[in-house]
Design a protein around this nucleic acid. Structure first.
Lengths: 193, 193
DNA sequence: ACCGTAGGCCAACACTTGTTGACACGCAAT
DNA sequence: ATTGCGTGTCAACAAGTGTTGGCCTACGGT
């Protein structure tokens, strides 16, 4: 406790840890939880499989570390209320394309209960709280957030997982102009109209 | 070629084949492709694992048989054009809840390339052709169908796979009144409004 | 210069997986 | 009654999995 390196002084193995995490995210995103093997991840990171176990304890632990994720939703209270939908679609598109963690989580959530739990957490806590505007009751807010999640995740599922051709080929801005109004209605509209 | 039993005379093992298929659909729907083991499926069907191989050739073959699926879309040309969205949501909800084949296919499509291919086929061929109304060009129709697929699959994903609480608890008719207009706009509207 | 320890590799384990072949039973036609 | 074949079981294989422990190496503080 001599050096003032306060926040857990850097270990010599940090580079290896990062390499493992990066390879893990790639494999989980490409193959899903069960098909992504520790051996393959270790080979990508050019280390021995046993290192993965030493640093992350188990495959579950590795996934938990690799799927750590923050939606980084912007402060929606400063967005003009009629542009909420458009803003959200743009933000999510950028977030999906820029970071494969979300794809990994989405793929894994189909078959891995832990991943599904984490997905629920992200879209319940982060999205629902960001969407919670003034006035409306708790169940109504949750429902609005759920509807938004259904369209956002459907977009991601068809575009990045199943790779439905029309959803892959379409320009991002075209998606914004179609899906933005949908989210807008889910957030600020009433059912039926 | 003596007996006139034209449509492949019934085999004595048809009951077993059906039991295997039923157990397979359940397991694939509950666990996904890789976690659903042939041994578990055989145990559910109360037969030996080797029977599965004999009747379906391989695990891939079994899945192909178990995931055979028809959306059974109604004839949309007889539906008043302003009620297309509502009709579709109601139909899909009934279809998802009544037959676990679609859930099995959806779960498997996340990690199994063959299942993803089949999902693409279903939503490209069946949905796109049912949606193909007069006039509009091919790419536009495909895009509309893709958008509809994204919302429908997002609904299914959040409600049946991830089980997002607000999407699980909500009443079906409530979903129709929210999501119906979305599909309506995707089918007959223009982007932006 | 020394030595403890963290970083890394190797080999092996226990287990599960899809898949296969040999063997037994029983129905149906001869 | 006998023969053949469809139906089913049992045991085993080869491959791949997550996981573990032992061993070597080399850096960094003393």
């Amino acid at each position: 406790m001599a050096a003032p390196a306060r926040p857990t002084q850097p270990r010599r193995s940090d580079a290896t840890r990062a390499a493992i995490l990066r390879a893990a995210r790639e494999r989980f995103a490409a193959d899903g939880y069960e098909r992504a093997t520790i051996r393959a991840i270790a080979a990508d990171a050019r280390i021995d499989p046993s290192m993965v176990m030493r640093y992350y304890g188990s495959k579950e632990g590795l996934f938990a570390a690799a799927a750590e994720f923050d939606l980084r939703l912007p402060d929606l209270t400063v967005v003009p209320s009629e542009r909420l939908g458009e803003t959200l679609v743009r933000h999510f598109l950028a977030r999906w394309e820029g970071d494969e963690t979300l794809v990994a989580l989405l793929r894994a959530a189909s078959t891995n209960p832990g991943a599904a739990e984490r997905m629920r957490g992200i879209f319940t806590d982060q999205l629902a709280s960001a969407v919670a505007t003034s006035g409306t009751g708790e169940t109504v807010t949750a429902r609005r957030a759920g509807l938004v999640a259904s369209q956002i995740l459907g977009l991601a599922f068809t575009r990045y997982i199943v790779r439905l051709p029309p959803m892959v080929d379409v320009e991002p801005e075209e998606l914004v102009s179609w899906i933005g109004p949908t989210l807008q209605r889910y957030l600020t509209g009433r059912p039926g109209n």
